[in-house]
């Protein structure tokens, strides 16, 4: 064994510094591997070397999970109002319009109806790139309407979460979206319609404490951060370092809060199998 060879993650002795042409290559946050974007896309935005799952958006998940060209988007134009006239270091209205320009999205969730292996599902997928995937009135309303579509069309509901929690700039309105979406899911459950919740990196705060944790089946991507309070807050509260692997998908599986963890490349086939049992 080469005892002088560094074995710690991220510290590769044989790495050569190189200039990356802008936009063509990505560096894996997990192992430091430099991967060409085309290759990354082929591997569904997971690292070819360490299987790290890159954060991706709703558009990517739609292409990975749903039948080709089957997705019909709803409520695409819905946008945040500014009910509190909220200003911090920046006006909320500016923050929203800047983010819309930057991301090309109108808010932090995309919803609609699509097909998985020819089976219709009501589908919602959050976008972390939009103000940290935060849940305000728009996310709450769009998710609620998506659940309504599942209810009315008697089809399964699938939600992919990726969110830092409730959106502060809408105050109590954001908080109430937790109650609103949860009560919708209660009605869906009474109608015996299935709800599958998929947790991706990160899923925290009010999103976790509402629809993310209420799936009949809860699936997580590997090594995602999932929790209620953020790690920094917990560390401050208890005044100790957090154990390794705390608040990861694997930690939740071990403690009994997710049904299973699945690699992104196998997600679609798992959903197909599950839907055979549930719908």
């Amino acid at each position: 064994m080469a005892w002088f060879k560094r074995s710690k993650e991220n510290i590769a002795s044989d790495s050569v510094k190189m200039e990356l042409p802008d936009g063509l290559w990505e560096k894996c946050p997990g192992c430091g591997e430099i991967i060409h974007k085309k290759q990354l896309e082929t591997y569904l935005w997971t690292c070819t070397k360490c299987d790290h799952h890159f954060r991706i958006g709703s558009q990517e998940y739609i292409s990975i999970l749903l039948d080709k060209a089957s997705f019909k988007e709803y409520d695409k134009k819905m946008r945040s109002a500014d009910p509190l006239d909220f200003v911090d270091s920046k006006k909320y209205t500016e923050r929203v319009s800047d983010t819309i320009k930057k991301t090309g999205l109108n808010d932090a969730v995309r919803t609609g109806i699509g097909k998985i292996h020819d089976k219709e599902v009501s589908f919602a997928c959050m976008d972390f790139s939009f103000i940290g995937g935060s849940m305000g009135s728009v996310v709450g309303e769009k998710i609620s309407r998506a659940i309504d579509r599942a209810y009315k069309n008697k089809i399964p509901m699938i939600i992919i979460s990726s969110s830092g929690g409730a959106r502060m700039m809408e105050g109590a309105f954001s908080l109430m979206q937790m109650a609103k979406t949860s009560s919708r899911l209660a009605r869906l459950a009474e109608a015996k319609l299935p709800y599958i919740s998929i947790l991706t990196d990160p899923t925290t705060g009010g999103t976790t404490a509402s629809y993310a944790m209420l799936g009949d089946i809860i699936i997580a991507e590997p090594k995602a951060l999932i929790g209620f309070a953020g790690p920094r807050v917990i560390k401050q509260t208890i005044g100790k370092d957090l154990p390794e692997g705390f608040q990861t998908s694997e930690f939740l599986l071990e403690n009994g809060f997710v049904d299973f963890i699945v690699h992104r490349k196998d997600m679609r086939s798992k959903l197909i199998t599950l839907l055979e049992y549930l719908a």
């Binding site: 109002a81 009135s137 709450g140 309105f173 109430m176 109650a179 009560s183």
Partner: peptide, 10 residues
């Protein structure tokens, strides 16, 4: 009651 909570533009 809870369904009504929230403010947004369409």
């Amino acid at each position: 009651k809870f369904a009504r909570m929230g403010v947004f533009n369409e």
